[in-house]
């Protein structure tokens, strides 16, 4: 379908001194739109929050347990995109 927008992963730094953490995903046609929507949806437009968005397809996935044979073998499918991080309680408004 030509109108399908790519999946973006959203990373948010709730305040200075914290790392960016993965908070979820969304669909957007381009980076600007992804940023705008990420701010609306995942930060409630909190001005002090820093946001990264990256196309899910561009993420190379690995995890500490990756060698574990009990993980599904390939990392080439969308549904294997990483959701490594727990949402920490200290990210505002989550």
């Amino acid at each position: 379908m030509t109108g399908e927008w790519p999946l973006y992963e959203v990373f948010v730094r709730g305040k200075r001194g914290l790392n960016h953490v993965h908070v979820g995903s969304l669909r957007a046609a381009d980076d600007d739109m992804a940023l705008h929507h990420a701010r609306d949806l995942y930060t409630r437009r909190n001005e002090g929050v820093s946001i990264w968005v990256v196309k899910a397809a561009d993420i190379a996935a690995s995890s500490p347990d990756e060698k574990d044979p009990f993980f599904a073998p390939s990392a080439d499918k969308v549904y294997r995109h990483p959701t490594f991080y727990e949402i920490p309680e200290n990210v505002p408004h989550m």
């Binding site: 999946l7 979820g24 995903s25 969304l26 949806l41 499918k77 969308v78 549904y79 995109h81 959701t83």
Partner: peptide, 12 residues
């Protein structure tokens, strides 16, 4: 949107 996003992690 949160939920569709969770479904996408399973290939939905």
């Amino acid at each position: 949107l949160y939920l569709y996003s969770a479904a996408e992690t399973l290939g939905g």
